[in-house]
């Protein structure tokens, strides 16, 4: 064993903006790699999550596959972090929550002007959308929350270095943002 913390990350109903902000820690990523190694993550392209010390979830839960992946992460990660507005409170995808799902699909795929009226996609490979979009803490136990849309790179850096050092993450004024 390398003695490094094993970290997995994924984006559920998110835009990968939080992952982009994560990459914005720039050369500090190399410093981070001295103490962590990546399991499933867009960085490694590993498809299934293995046993990890830390799981980082971007995005809320909007379909059946999100629920599956989230539960897999919870099962395999000692510590689970909700990263970004969507994971924390549903964010932008949750803005559909006051609308009826069938009405949305009808309008987006069928009745909207300029469409070919091809109908609502129903390929069995497509994960079924949920009636409502949920923040991840409504589905699994979440240990830490890192808000922001996205959280600034400096906030992600502070948060991760606190966690890796065994401290409760603390974001001072200027690093804690909901927008």
């Amino acid at each position: 064993m390398s003695g490094k913390l094993r970290v997995a990350t994924t984006s559920l109903a998110g835009c990968f903006g939080c992952h982009m902000s994560f990459l914005d820690i720039d050369e500090r990523l190399l410093t981070l790699l001295e103490v962590v190694e990546f399991d499933r993550s867009p960085i490694t392209d590993i498809k299934e999550v293995g046993q990890c010390d830390l799981g980082i979830i971007e995005g809320g839960v909007c379909n059946a596959e999100n629920v599956h992946v989230l539960r897999e992460f919870r099962k395999h990660c000692k510590t689970l972090v909700a990263m970004g507005a969507c994971a924390v409170n549903g964010g932008l995808p949750a803005q559909r929550n006051h609308l009826d799902l069938r009405d949305i699909l009808e309008e987006v795929y069928h009745t909207e002007l300029g469409l070919a009226h091809g109908g609502i996609p129903n390929d069995p490979e497509l994960p079924l959308p949920l009636n409502k979009v949920h923040p991840i803490h409504e589905v699994v136990k979440v240990d830490y929350f890192l808000p922001g849309c996205p959280p600034p790179a400096d906030a992600i850096w502070k948060f991760l270095t606190d966690l890796v050092a065994g401290r409760t993450p603390h974001l001072a004024h200027g690093l804690l943002h909901y927008d």
Partner: peptide, 21 residues
């Protein structure tokens, strides 16, 4: 928002209502 920052609120914690307003 500013008061929630000051109180260190990291999560809404409870289940969201998502009301239609």
């Amino acid at each position: 928002q500013a008061t929630a920052y000051e109180m260190g609120m990291m999560t809404p914690h409870f289940d969201m209502f998502y009301p239609d307003r």
